[in-house]
Design a protein around this nucleic acid. Structure first.
Lengths: 260, 260
DNA sequence: GCTGTAAGTTCCATTATACGGAACACAATT
DNA sequence: AATTGTGTTCCGTATAATGGAACTTACAGC
């Protein structure tokens, strides 16, 4: 009764399942590889893949391995540029970056993952696609923990129950108990921290953002390398990070509420 | 018999149709707006939208308008970073940028549109998502015309027949005849140009890229403002742009051909 | 070369799934 | 309170997805 939840939205869900299989794999997959990873009969899978290719969501390489299609880029480009929340937050990210000189991230919570929606950094030498659209586990990122802290308790517990904790560094929170304790602290302090919990040498301060009813939760963070950002500096940014988050929420209220 | 082509891949196609409607519209659409734009009954559309939302491909805003979902960013992020062609081309784009000091674009042809896959520019102040994943008409961009020129004649004619020519500037090619004439020239010269045909004050040199069998065609371009790039400078870059394209094709042959 | 095995593709009767009309809620507007 | 417009649910029907099996390639070993 626990794991019987077949969360596939009919045909569409099946199709996305295939996309996910291709997306998740690091090594290129050929037809039979996908077949083994999916639990579908050959004929069925073949048709699904055909459809996905015809729609441009999947591409086939010369070596018969599959890759995600360019149509996704096209759609994502529009998804990003027309995203209301992102455009509201943008100037505040910019300001926060000017105040700190470090990289600023905007991420939203989806399930038990954080999707990075935007990023501002001084030297934009790193490719943006390598960050924007990227996902990271909730429990070991500042943005993730900040977002979690804004959830109502029942939602919070439901989400945490789904997490499979995994150690990335020696500082990674090991289990639900540790995470819950930290959430509690975040709620009283107003800020979340990531102290080398996901990547070594990287730390950040974050603050939660949420909609009226808390169905939508997100977070904003200032990130940098530990050699440059001492714990004191990090905590000194707590206030302005919270302020930025608050400002964003204020703008959301005025710009989204009554009508378009 | 011409327009009777129902190009909807079953259920998936219908779902993407809805996504497209939302993506194409500049103004936010509410349920009824989408209903009017699609030719589906209310109940059906409602279920489709529900499914799309459940899968994270569509989001609903507070004002009941729809927007593309964040799941698309997640998928596109992976599509981009794992794209073989892009990663092969990347160092060559970089080099071409260093040689010219101007913005370098990589775009692939999909149908009668160009999808921009990558971009290198000195000051990356402009947001990358605003370009990467963006689409532009084939007939008024350097990359587009270059890519077209690499197609076999029958394919070329088929594609051109689908184009609805539209004037963006006074230099925009007005019709198929003008386009075909220029394709001919591109084939002999080896380079395509965009001389303020899409946007005023913007010009570029481009060169075609294609796979062995020309099923896959793309283009590379160097772009800049006319006040800085004189026609002489532009033509002086023709050679190195072609060279970059050639180098990319050579790498494709060695890195993609025999096996993974 | 030929044979055998695996990979990839097509076909078609069955059945599950998407369809869509109509009835039902819920706002706003008068 | 009545009315119009907008969004949601239901359920018998018809369509479209299913998946087993047969059919091609491609590629190995002999």
């Amino acid at each position: 009764m626990d794991k019987a939840k077949e969360n596939s939205t009919g045909t569409l869900g099946k199709a996305l399942e295939v996309l996910n299989i291709v997306a998740s794999s690091s090594a290129p997959l050929r037809f039979t590889d996908v077949l083994k990873l999916s639990d579908q009969p050959r004929g069925t899978l073949h048709r699904q893949i055909s459809n996905l290719m015809e729609e441009g969501l999947l591409d086939i390489n010369r070596d018969h391995s599959y890759g995600l299609g360019l149509r996704l880029l096209q759609l994502a480009s529009k998804a990003w540029s027309s995203n209301q929340f992102r455009s509201i937050a943008e100037p505040h990210l910019q300001k926060l970056h000017e105040q700190t000189g470090e990289t600023v991230h905007l991420g939203v919570l989806r399930g038990i993952e954080v999707i990075y929606l935007d990023k501002v950094e001084s030297r934009q030498s790193v490719r943006m696609y390598s960050q924007i659209g990227n996902t990271a586990p909730v429990y070991c990122t500042g943005v993730g923990k900040a977002a979690l802290s804004a959830l109502p308790d029942d939602e919070l517990n439901a989400r945490i129950a789904q997490i499979a904790f995994q150690r990335f560094t020696s500082n990674t929170l090991p289990d639900a108990k540790a995470l819950l304790a930290e959430i509690k602290q975040i709620r009283t302090e107003g800020n979340a921290y990531d102290r080398e919990e996901h990547e070594a040498d990287i730390c950040c301060v974050a603050a939660p953002i949420h909609s009226h009813n808390r169905h939508f939760v997100a977070g904003i963070s200032v990130t940098g390398p530990v050699y440059r950002i001492t714990p004191e500096i990090l905590t000194s940014w707590a206030g302005i990070t919270r302020a930025a988050a608050t400002a964003i929420m204020a703008n959301m209220a005025t710009q989204l509420s009554p009508r378009a």
